[in-house]
Measured scan of single mutants.
Amino acid sequence: SFQYVPVQLQGGAPWGFTLKGGLEHCEPLTVSKIEDGGKAALSQKMRTGDELVNINGTPLYGSRQEALILIKGSFRILKLIVRRRN
């Protein structure tokens, strides 16, 4: 089963996490790295392996390109929903 975790990061880029996968690579869009001391790490809500399913209220369909555009369009606040295996 899965758990959906809301994450809100503040203060602008860099957000402190790296993505891998996506439709382009025929795999889920997941968090591959969280930078020590970065905003994602400080939130204590994101983990490597989390799947990104929503950015700023926009549902994602797995495209890494789409996710990067939405993330780049976030100035002060980035709201994410990640899906994690229980």
Rank of each mutant, 00 (worst) to 15 (best):
F2E: 06
Q3I: 13
Q3W: 09
Q3G: 03
Q3R: 09
Y4N: 06
Y4Q: 08
V5T: 06
V5W: 05
V5F: 13
P6D: 15
L9V: 01
Q10R: 12
Q10Y: 12
Q10I: 15
Q10H: 12
A13Y: 11
P14K: 04
P14F: 06
W15L: 00
W15V: 04
G16P: 04
G16A: 01
G16Y: 00
F17M: 00
T18F: 15
L19H: 02
G21T: 00
G21K: 02
G22S: 04
G22E: 00
L23S: 15
E24W: 00
E24P: 10
E24L: 06
H25F: 13
H25T: 13
C26P: 05
C26E: 14
C26K: 12
E27L: 12
P28H: 00
L29T: 09
L29A: 00
L29Q: 01
T30G: 03
T30W: 05
T30Y: 11
S32F: 10
K33M: 12
K33T: 13
K33S: 14
I34C: 02
I34S: 02
E35K: 09
E35D: 12
E35F: 14
G37S: 08
G37Q: 08
G38E: 04
G38T: 05
K39N: 06
K39E: 01
A40I: 03
A40C: 10
A40P: 00
A41V: 03
L42R: 10
Q44Y: 09
Q44V: 06
R47S: 09
G49Q: 06
G49H: 07
G49K: 02
D50Q: 05
E51M: 04
E51Q: 09
L52R: 03
V53I: 08
N54E: 13
I55V: 14
I55R: 01
I55N: 06
I55W: 01
N56P: 00
G57K: 03
T58R: 12
G62V: 04
S63F: 09
Q65R: 13
E66A: 11
E66C: 09
A67T: 02
L68D: 15
L68F: 09
I69L: 15
I69S: 15
L70P: 06
L70C: 08
I71T: 03
K72Q: 13
G73L: 06
G73E: 12
S74D: 12
R76N: 14
I77G: 11
I77V: 14
I77E: 15
I77N: 13
L78T: 04
L78F: 02
I81N: 01
I81G: 05
V82H: 06
V82Q: 00
V82F: 10
R83I: 05
R84C: 01
R84P: 05
R84I: 00
R84N: 00
R85L: 07
